[in-house]
Nucleic acid binder design. Structure first.
Lengths: 227, 227
DNA sequence: GGATGTGAATGCATTCACAGCA
DNA sequence: TGCTGTGAATGCATTCACATCC
């Protein structure tokens, strides 16, 4: 399949494949079949092959996929073969936790600046970073070549902060505020709504209680048998 | 449409509708059309109507949907018309931030117990809660009628912790560890992988750089024009 | 007029099934 | 034999378009 037509759900699965491959690699697996990779994540083997085929021919007939090789290819595809600089806006409880979250750096994302508008926080240090006022955003974005931001401010300030991020030249935003941001088309927003995720749990538990069979799992959801 | 066939993506959208309706309500909107609700979230009007029609007839021809009424209906559907007790396992940086996160309670989820296996943390207090050892899980689950858990332990302990949650009777898990949990079919896992979300941003930024048109947005993604 | 709800039509995503290669 | 890559077939999800009602 050519790169022109990528099913949007496949882009998510690509990330899941990459995580799972890294896990297999930690267990010293050198090769893996589409069947094994799929089973670990709750997908069919055909799904795995089709998804990967969107981007090239990574497999070896009779053998499967070489784990290290496929990891390298996927990282390149996702743009995580190089480290990205990321800034944070909003140093509340959640923001502070994200500042010290190890998982970001493990996947190639380095938090190198933190901003807040609360005068009580400005110039304080959390982790390795000193909190700066939001009007220093454009300067930081330009000097440190930052393309992505994490937005962890309260909902009522989120749109204004997003506007400042966009004005400063940010092109990707991970939005933790529970609302849809309005941004120009060249800016990409990824919304992470924690309470919404809980609500999804709640819905599926209610369904189970009513003994109505649950709908098939969307990509984000995994209830799989033990490998 | 009957309740038998619910497209899985629709279940996500239901939560987005609910959030957006609550926002409209804060602005004192009393009624809303499928077109307006859809536009706020980047969906078509037909999509909104079809999704809602899976669960009943909530609209009023010529009028639209009454905001308060639809909120009540959706909350009932999602099971968030009542407060749910939730427990937390793993009181690291992320866990502590989640303990004090206001958004959960706003949507009807109350964190009422926190667990960790680090002896240095046990019996310490964070927020209103005292940290307890994991072997008290079954007791807490039974006594406080807890069905859902937030799992925020490091990846290498996540499966073991999940096993304990399942054994204790938990039926829904919000999993922050970057791996697929193996659980029995009656347990529902919602995976939240923060680095994976960043990776999705990275991918779409790479696409934009290559000047290949981006695939249409999956439900979680919103880049919409200003209302 | 203005809006919903819904069968019919369209368009995608997934799965099947098999040719081809190691 | 074992596994990939891929056209063809299937099955869903979305959109269209219109009857219906306020």
């Amino acid at each position: 399949m050519k790169a022109e037509s990528i099913p949007p759900p496949a882009v998510y699965r690509l990330s899941f494949y990459l995580r799972q491959l890294e896990i297999f690699q930690r267990f010293n697996r050198h090769t893996i079949s589409s069947k094994q990779l799929g089973e670990a994540l709750g997908y069919t083997d055909a799904q795995v092959r089709k998804d990967l085929a969107c981007f090239g021919q990574f497999g070896h007939p009779g053998i499967g996929y070489r784990v290290a090789e496929l990891i390298a290819q996927l990282k390149k595809l996702m743009g995580t073969d190089k480290i990205h600089n990321v800034l944070l806006v909003g140093v509340g409880n959640l923001g502070r936790a994200l500042l010290t979250y190890k998982g970001f750096l493990q996947q190639g994302f380095r938090l190198i600046a933190a901003f807040d508008n609360d005068p009580a926080k400005i110039n304080r240090r959390f982790g390795e970073l000193q909190i700066r006022p939001l009007d220093e955003l454009p300067q930081a974005v330009a000097e440190q070549h930052i393309q992505m931001a994490i937005l962890a401010v309260p909902a009522q300030f989120a749109q204004a902060a997003a506007d400042q991020l966009v004005a400063a030249g940010i092109r990707g935003i991970l939005n933790f505020a529970p609302l849809s941001l309005a941004v120009p088309p060249h800016v990409f927003v990824q919304r992470v709504d924690l309470a919404l995720q809980m609500e999804q749990l709640s819905f599926h538990l209610s369904l189970a209680n009513l003994k109505i069979p649950a709908p098939a799992s969307p990509p984000e959801i995994h209830t799989i048998p033990r490998p």
